[in-house]
Simulated scan of single mutants.
Amino acid sequence: MDGSASAAERAYQAIRDGILNGVHPAGTMLGEEALATEIGVSRTPVRSALSRLQDEGWIVIYPKRGALVQGLSERAVADLEDARLMLESTGASRAGAEIRDELAERLRESIAAQREAFRTRDVRRFIELTIRFHRAFVEAAGNDVLLELNDRLADRQRFLLFSKGDRLLARCDDIVAEHEELVERLRTGDAAGFTDALRQHLADNYAPPVTTGYERGSQTTR
């Protein structure tokens, strides 16, 4: 990889991470010069990175003004919720008894770490823990295609959770209790109960929907 390609990739990763983790929230106007100074590169790789991020639907570039960070439309949030419900409930329903027992034990350790993250108000750590927690239900099916589909949603999930950081902290006890219920439903093989609990859990965490006035529901590249 030559220097310009490396700089462009570094700029892309830095800007993308800033969008996903809430440093650049929806509605923020990003400027090439400020980004270049912050990242430590020239404006050319920043311009390349912004073009790539626009293709992925994260921003809209306005010539001579900057790049506007997009939010998730109500439709996009609803679609994400629906897709996660299908993937995770399918994964949990297909797990055998031995896998369920092993996974339940591992997820209880995750819940303990989540509780500690909430205690220290470390939203960033909780979000990464909960993304891995929910991924485990899909992984339990042993289906690589389902897991690939799930992983393609991780950036949207991360973006949405960071946009709801205050809500997560306000619901911390409820979230931990809901995660514990999901693990118990999984352990006992209660597929219908797991699906019902997951549906309510997602609805509680995703509502009220993000409404920024900018639509991204038609994006299909991620």
Rank of each mutant, 00 (worst) to 15 (best):
A92N: 03
F118M: 07
V210Y: 13
A140M: 07
D82P: 05
H134R: 04
D174V: 02
V176Y: 14
L161P: 05
A154T: 15
G189D: 09
F118G: 08
E181N: 07
D204H: 11
Q157L: 03
D101A: 11
I99N: 10
L85A: 10
F126S: 05
R152H: 06
I131T: 13
A112E: 15
E102Q: 15
S89G: 07
V123P: 10
A154E: 15
R125Q: 12
L147W: 06
T195P: 08
R106T: 12
R100A: 03
A177H: 12
L129K: 11
R167P: 14
E116L: 01
S218I: 13
R167G: 04
L153A: 04
F159A: 04
A207V: 10
D82K: 14
F118D: 11
E181H: 11
E81L: 00
A207I: 06
R167Y: 12
T221R: 05
A154I: 10
G165A: 01
Q219R: 13
V210I: 11
G165P: 14
A104T: 15
R222V: 12
I99D: 13
V210A: 06
V145F: 13
L147D: 05
T90I: 06
E215P: 14
L149R: 08
Q114I: 02
T211V: 10
A95Y: 07
A191K: 01
S218P: 15
H179F: 01
G213I: 02
V176I: 13
A207F: 03
I175T: 13
E81W: 03
T188S: 11
G91K: 05
L186T: 04
F133K: 03
G142L: 00
L129T: 11
L129M: 08
N205C: 03
T120S: 10
D204T: 06
S93R: 07
D174F: 03
L161Q: 04
F133A: 04
Q157N: 15
L129S: 02
R171W: 11
T212M: 00
F159M: 12
A83P: 14
H201K: 02
T188R: 11
R121V: 05
R171T: 09
A192G: 05
S110Y: 07
A83L: 01
A140P: 07
A207S: 06
L147S: 13
R158S: 06
R100S: 05
P208S: 02
L80F: 08
S218M: 13
L160V: 00
E178Y: 09
F162G: 05
L169F: 07
E102K: 01
A177L: 02
V176L: 05
G217V: 01
D166V: 00
D151Q: 12
R84W: 12
Y206Q: 12
A95E: 12
I127N: 09
A136C: 07
V176S: 05
F162D: 12
A191R: 08
D204M: 07
L147F: 08
E181S: 12
R158G: 15
G213E: 15
R121T: 09
